[in-house]
Amino acid sequence: MSTANDVPLLSLRGLGKRFGAVEALVDVDLDVYAHEVVALVGDNGAGKSTVAKMISGVLTPDTGLIEIDGETVTIPTPIAAHALGIATVFQELALADNLDVTSNLFLGRELHRGRVRDDETMEQIARKVLRDLNSRIPSVKSPLSTLSKGQRQSVAIARTLIGRPRIVVLDEPTAALSVSQTAEVLTHIERLRDLGLGVVLISHNMNDVRAVSDRIIVLRHGRNNGEFDAATVSHEAILAAITGAPPTRELDPTAFLPTPH
């Protein structure tokens, strides 16, 4: 899956962000290529959501650069992110319970002719997108309040496919889900990769991460703390990087492949 010679789809260079006295991110680097799932892991408060929000135009970095196809971009708003082909599933599910599935899929980017919404076209696209994801949503007209947690998560992921994005960021998409729902979401994520997108999967569930990701990047206290090949790395090595404990090398020394930047 490695396309290391190409220019990354998305690349973060030396990102920094402060919230008052809190240094949420310091000098963070991250590359994502097409056809790739990059897992971004770390303990609570490590800065994962902050990275997601900067990629998706909710927060702007204090320092550092964001590049898309090797060109520096600024992403001042979620609309700008969408225009750049970036779609995000936020940790705090950004869905409106009182609206139906189609309305949620197109929220903030409704199709319209003049000032009138083009509901028919939106519904047709909605059905196609759900079909592409093999999603189990009863109807594109179902109000979100009638769906299960897993179905909502499917809607949130389907939302990312509206407008043909190239980069999808998912912030803790399985956090509140049951085992079978989680499996479904992970399948969705693999579908996104198969569709040729670059995916950033944020999680602190090691099983999920190892199940679908190609590379694993660890954040600790807002800094890069190791990068691993998901196919070969050991559970312990990742945990060690997340917690800062020395890795228990005797278990699987070859699996630990930190890549300096």
Partner: peptide, 24 residues
């Protein structure tokens, strides 16, 4: 019922944070 503005009013009332994260 039929305009983008109307839809955004409902979205804001349903989930203000979601609406703003979605670019409304």
């Amino acid at each position: 019922g039929r305009t983008v503005f109307g839809r955004h009013i409902y979205a804001i009332g349903g989930n203000r944070l979601a609406a703003s994260l979605s670019g409304v």
